[in-house]
């Protein structure tokens, strides 16, 4: 079902764990859906004074595809300028892994989204202008999170539980 590249990244995940002294973190997903991804970035400057992702890591709760895409996106983004990193698409992440089973494509969406959210947080923290594409993606992710939250609450209701807190991502 999975390509060799997926299995390689799953077995030997790159840049895993929490980053010390990170500049920003992007959080996406919902435990009720079985996938949560947190991407940590550290922003530095390269020789030309461009802002680059000097270090990156992730913590992921999810299937092998989710872990492999986290690992892949971290490899793809490391050393890139923020502008370049914003342009990393879900499709590129999946292609980098030699493809994902159709049902698992949402896992690659999560990885790129989490990276985007981290960059978004970094720029907003520093009072910087948010590029249009980034803002749009951020809005889309926020909307999805709201949908997931609803699903979570309805699952609790189905189970007859009502006091499981509010369900923010963390």
């Amino acid at each position: 079902m999975y390509t060799d590249q997926v299995m390689d990244h799953f077995r030997n995940p790159r840049n895993k764990g929490k980053l010390e002294n990170y500049s920003a973190v992007g959080k996406v997903g919902q435990v009720v859906c079985g996938d949560v991804m947190w991407v940590y970035i550290k922003v530095g400057e390269d020789d030309q004074g461009r802002e680059v992702i000097s270090d990156i890591s992730w913590e992921t709760y999810g299937c092998a595809a989710a872990i492999a895409t986290s690992s892949m996106v971290s490899e793809m983004a490391k050393g890139k300028s923020l502008d370049e990193a914003i342009d990393i698409t879900n499709r590129e992440v999946a292609e980098g892994l030699g493809g994902l089973p159709p049902v698992k494509m949402h896992c690659s969406a999560l990885a790129a989204d989490a990276l985007n959210e981290a960059i978004y947080e970094y720029l907003s923290q520093n009072g910087r202008e948010i590029p249009e594409v980034l803002e749009q993606r951020h809005q889309r992710v926020a909307k999805q999170m709201a949908v997931l939250e609803k699903r979570y609450q309805s699952l609790l209701q189905e189970q007859g539980v009502s006091d499981h807190g509010t369900g923010s991502s963390g």
């Binding site: 009720v32 699952l155 609790l156 539980v161």
Partner: peptide, 20 residues
Amino acid sequence: ACSSPDLEPSHVLVAIGVPP
């Protein structure tokens, strides 16, 4: 859910109230 084709968690585990 991640192992099932429809990405739904086991209906059995949900029915017995395993915490989300």
